[in-house]
């Protein structure tokens, strides 16, 4: 009986430590905020994609964000330590892809977006080839343009 309890405790302990080692969202957010730079924090996004939820495919997670015209935003993302692949972050206007952190086969940790039309946009995260993983992204405001500035 004692052995059984000990084994159970061990299994639970290992399970917990494994889960936390894979994804510590608090630490990821701290990193993402540091990498945000000089901008002003608007919102953060949790990415936690698991294979078992989608029958072997980790799928995507989508967030809606309202971005305002004449504003420059930065989207930066930090990957979980256990990720086998880096997270793919894409910004859409409806079904039209506006910007992605993947360029020339490389995954970047951030991209900037100068918004010229106030509306709801979609921020979509996924992992290449349906692999699973976690990440934390931050949306920050970098700059607001006045009339006549930056082509506005």
């Amino acid at each position: 009986m004692r052995k059984l309890i000990f084994t159970l405790l061990l299994l639970v302990g290992v399970g917990f430590s494994g889960a936390y080692a894979q994804c510590n969202h608090e630490a990821l957010l701290k990193d993402a905020l540091t990498q945000m730079g000089d901008g002003q924090y608007i919102k953060d996004f949790i990415v936690d994609l698991k294979n078992e939820k989608n029958g072997g495919e980790s799928g995507t997670v989508k967030y809606s964000v309202i971005l305002n015209s004449r504003s420059q935003y930065k989207f930066n993302v930090v990957n979980g330590a256990g990720n086998s692949e880096k997270v793919h972050m894409q910004l859409y206007d409806g079904d039209k892809l506006l910007v992605s952190n993947k360029a020339q086969g490389k995954m970047y940790s951030a991209f900037g977006f100068v918004c010229r039309s106030t509306k709801v946009y979609s921020l979509v995260f996924s992992f290449p080839e349906g692999s699973e993983g976690c990440a934390r992204a931050v949306l920050s405001l970098q700059r607001q343009f006045a009339a006549g500035e930056g082509g506005f």
């Binding site: 015209s69 206007d93 506006l98 910007v99 360029a103 900037g112 977006f113 100068v114 039309s117």
Partner: peptide
């Protein structure tokens, strides 16, 4: 009113920045 132009890509401090094509 919406005006549709061409998106622009600029590089600033090593980060790619996309300037939206559509403007309202």
């Amino acid at each position: 009113t919406k005006e549709v132009g061409e998106p622009k890509t600029i590089e600033q401090d090593g980060m790619l920045i996309i300037v939206q094509a559509e403007a309202s």
